[in-house]
Design a protein around this nucleic acid. Structure first.
Lengths: 204, 204
DNA sequence: TGATTGATTGAATAGTCATTCAATGGAGCG
DNA sequence: CGCTCCATTGAATGACTATTCAATCAATCA
């Protein structure tokens, strides 16, 4: 065997990540169907055929992107919840972090939009649909729980926790769309616009 | 000539609208590329070839949808602005109307999502991109103007008018995505969650 | 009735693109 | 050196699908 098995696997993994990272942008801006395998290959800088050495199909690339995106987002959401902070601080941190990430890392916007559109598409692989169905409301539930906890503490009022969570996340998704539409010109709004939904008394 | 010219044109127009109305749903849920002309034809209940009697191409159908969507939305926005109401009342009416329409008319959500994704896609006809670029910030400007007017009156505070407009519309777009993801199960949140961004003092 | 016009069909065409595959290259190893 | 294993290439294949088109149909009117 050439090289060590471990080293081989690591190189293979890096290559797979490079493919995924190029593919996200293309899938998000063109959709699965309109993205040609040739486009992905040339974005990564490899021959078309080589893609099939790393992934079974174009669809498998798509599914892997969806899988990893939910892994990260849901892990982050659960970690935030476990932090030793008050509900209000957690909401504020979430809003601030999300808006900053949106501004600084275009990738985050791409992934977010990819998931949003995949959620309503019936032209994505069945496995992607299954992952989405299974995972999509984890972040909503986390925010709803925080809202409920904060309201119990009397730390803030606002509307029904489920409504708040819904508007919170849809706003983030909406901003991601906007961020891609504007490109580098995008500036995230003040996070207080978001948190004010939870704490009506906050002044700008 | 068979039939009167006027009658002919009216029938033709109704047929075109029927095609557009079926196509919106398909384009919004699958994207332009993944929507087959055969799909549209069978959704309308006509032969493939006949579509080409009413539109030059699949792309022309897409462009026409985009054109009509902006026509309606921007007309409505401008009319709202001209109504004899206070800025605050206008904002409230916009929020209420949008959230109700979203809940009651799935079509509105489809069109909204179609426009959102088309805005960031480089796989849509150049003409659609041009229309979007030209028209897209009309609604943002209207809301920003209302926010500014309201703040000048001292009727409400809140953040920077441009930020408010941004969050207002991206929330609506985000909710449209969510509405399609949930289908009939969707319920719009209380509009006060939206208006509270503009009027921090409002209690739920 | 026969002519004209627009609506409609579905099969043929032509182009595109995902996927496969036979062949080449190169790195370590005995 | 010769062997093995993986990475890599790009041309060939096969499926799919937008668009065209020749032909039929239906309604009106002179």
């Amino acid at each position: 065997m050439a090289r060590s098995a471990v080293q081989n696997e690591q190189m293979r993994d890096e290559r797979r990540q490079a493919i995924l990272s190029s593919a996200v942008r293309l899938f998000a801006t063109r959709g699965l169907a309109a993205t040609k395998v040739a486009d992905i290959a040339s974005a990564v800088g490899m021959a078309q055929g080589l893609l099939y050495h790393y992934f079974r199909s174009k669809e498998e690339i798509f599914v892997e992107i969806v899988r990893q995106a939910f892994d990260r987002m849901n892990t982050a959401a659960r970690e935030l919840e476990r932090l030793p902070l008050t509900p209000r601080q957690k909401i504020e941190r979430a809003a601030t972090t999300l808006l900053r990430t949106l501004e600084e890392h275009e990738d985050f916007a791409w992934i977010s939009v990819l998931i949003s559109t995949a959620s309503i598409s019936d032209a994505v692989p069945a496995e992607a649909t299954a992952i989405i169905r299974r995972e999509r409301d984890v972040p909503y539930r986390v925010v709803a729980r925080l809202a409920r906890a904060g309201q119990r503490d009397g730390a803030f009022e606002g509307g029904r926790p489920d409504d708040l969570a819904l508007v919170f996340w849809t706003t983030v998704k909406g901003l991601a769309l906007h961020r891609l539409a504007l490109g580098a010109a995008y500036k995230s709004p003040d996070p207080r616009i978001l948190t004010r939904m939870f704490f009506p008394e906050t002044r700008a």
